[in-house]
Amino acid sequence: MVVAVFAGVAVAGLLASFGVERMLHAHLGRVLTDICETDARSGFFAAVTGLTIVLSGALASTATSGYADPNAVGFDLLSGALTQARTVMAGLLGVVIVIAFLLIGAIRRYENRHRLLAPPAGPMAPGLSQDASMPMPPALANPAQ
């Protein structure tokens, strides 16, 4: 009975980690395409992130600390199953938080790099229209006239 309950919760944990991965997959792909400069890099990091989420959920779902008694039934068995489910949720939460922090760091580095590469915004030279579509007055466009 204990083994069956353990296996059931473990399979549910594995499905939950697949669900979290599927939920994040498309959005993560878009963010990584922005941050990484090439498709190869964004594809690799998307694959690594997905595998990390699924494997962390699978690892957390093998927690056996709640099943102290191998012949447990009733409330003890329920308590063990809840402890296992709690460990799965903590593992998934932890891996999502770690990925979020790593992404925040990467986004910050990406923005700093692009801020350094961008040309400085100086004052507009006289006679230059700010908007190319806006026609310039003839006196300003050709001052010799």
Binding site: R41, F44, A47, G50, L51
Partner: peptide, 20 residues
């Protein structure tokens, strides 16, 4: 089986980044 699946999933993206 898990390590085989991970290798199969990582093969294409890892080869692409390694080629780069």
């Amino acid at each position: 089986g898990g390590s085989g699946v991970v290798l199969w999933l990582l093969r294409a993206p890892l080869l692409a980044i390694l080629l780069e």
